[in-house]
C-alpha cells in the first residue's frame, strides 16, 4: 500500500515538477528533465578520502530502458551504481558533490530517507548473496520488513509473483522451504533478483550480475533483464561487451572515473566516437 502511494505521489510530482522546482539546489536539473528520464546525475563527483573516483559525471537514466555502464575494471562503475541507491553511505571517507535526482528529487538531500530510497531503487550484486535461509524466506525478507502483506496468503502471492518475474518459479516451486544455498549459482542469482523484485522497486540496479555465472546462466539472466524492462528501469554495470551489446538500450562508457561516451546501442558499438571507446570495444584496452 505504501508503494502504491509512493507511485501515485511520484506521478503527480512528475506533472507538477517544472512548476514547483524553484528551490535552491534542484533548480538547474529539473528544467532539463525530459519526461522519460528517471534519474539524472549532474556534475557528480565522488571521492574516497583523497582519491577522486568519479569525475564530473552527467548522465540520465531513462524509464523502462536498460542503461548499461561499461568500462574496464577499476573505472568506477560499481561506485557509480552503488551511489544511485546510497549503498556507499556507510563506506569510510565517502564524499559526494553534485547531484543525483530521482524524479527530480535529489536523493542525497536531507528529506530523503535512504531506507525508503532503497525500497524504490533495488540492487542485485556481483556475487549471488542469498541469505542462508529458505528460498521462500529469502524472497519474503523485504516484504516482511516493510510489512507489504497483511496475511500469509498475500505473502505467498508476493513470493510467487517475484519468483515468476525472476523466471525461477518453475524450478523452485516444489521446494520453497529448501535452503537457498542448495541452489546452483545461476539460480541463486535469479533468487537474488526475485528478492529484490519482491519489494516492487521501480528501478533495479545490477552490478555485474552475471560475472560469477556460467554461460548458460548468464544467458538466462540476460533474457530476464530484457523481460524485466517492460515494468522496470534497469541500470546494468558490466565489463562484458557481448552482454552490453545484447541487452543495452543506452550505453555509457566510463574510463578512469570519467564518462567518455554515451550513446544508444548498437550505435556506440558500431561507430564509437572516441578512440578510447573504440580501443575498449575492440579489446585493445583492458
Amino acid at each position: 500500500m505504501d508503494l502504491m502511494e509512493a507511485q501515485q505521489e511520484r506521478m503527480s510530482k512528475e506533472k507538477s515538477e517544472t512548476l514547483e522546482r524553484s528551490d535552491e539546489n534542484t533548480s538547474s536539473i529539473n528544467s532539463q528533465m525530459s519526461p522519460g528520464d528517471r534519474i539524472r546525475m549532474s556534475s557528480l563527483n565522488v571521492y574516497y578520502g583523497n582519491s577522486h573516483v568519479l569525475k564530473d559525471l552527467n548522465l540520465t537514466i531513462e524509464d523502462r530502458k536498460i542503461t548499461v555502464i561499461m568500462g574496464p575494471s577499476g573505472c568506477g562503475k560499481s561506485t557509480l551504481i552503488r551511489t544511485l541507491n546510497r549503498m556507499n553511505d556507510t563506506v569510510h571517507a565517502f564524499k559526494l558533490t553534485g547531484e543525483i535526482a530521482l524524479d527530480g528529487i535529489n536523493i542525497y538531500s536531507k528529506e530523503v530517507n535512504p531506507t525508503l530510497l532503497k525500497l524504490r531503487v533495488g540492487m542485485v550484486f556481483q556475487k549471488p548473496n542469498p541469505f542462508p535461509i529458505s528460498i521462500y524466506d529469502n524472497v519474503a525478507f523485504g516484504p516482511k520488513i516493510h510489512k507489504l502483506s497483511k496475511n500469509r496468503a498475500e505473502m505467498d502471492e508476493i513470493v510467487m509473483q517475484a519468483l515468476k518475474q525472476a523466471a525461477l518459479w518453475e524450478e523452485v516451486k516444489d521446494r520453497l522451504k529448501a535452503n537457498a544455498l542448495s541452489l546452483s549459482g545461476g539460480q541463486q542469482q535469479r533468487l537474488c533478483i526475485a528478492r529484490a523484485l519482491a519489494v516492487r522497486p521501480e528501478i533495479l540496479l545490477l552490478d555485474e550480475p552475471a560475472s560469477a555465472l556460467d554461460p548458460g546462466s548468464t544467458a538466462k539472466v540476460q533474457e530476464l533483464m530484457v523481460e524485466l524492462k517492460k515494468d522496470l528501469t534497469l541500470v546494468l554495470v558490466t565489463h562484458n561487451m557481448q552482454q552490453a551489446a545484447t541487452v543495452a538500450n543506452k550505453v555509457a562508457f566510463l574510463y578512469n572515473g570519467s564518462l567518455v561516451e554515451v550513446g544508444q546501442s548498437p550505435d556506440i558499438f558500431e561507430n564509437p566516437q572516441k578512440k578510447v571507446t573504440e580501443d575498449y570495444i575492440s579489446g585493445r584496452l583492458t
Partner: peptide, 12 residues
C-alpha cells in the same frame, strides 16, 4: 555480502 543484501532491501 549478507549485510549488503539486506541493506539493499531497505532494512535498517
Amino acid at each position: 555480502s549478507i549485510r549488503e543484501g539486506a541493506l539493499a532491501l531497505g532494512s535498517n
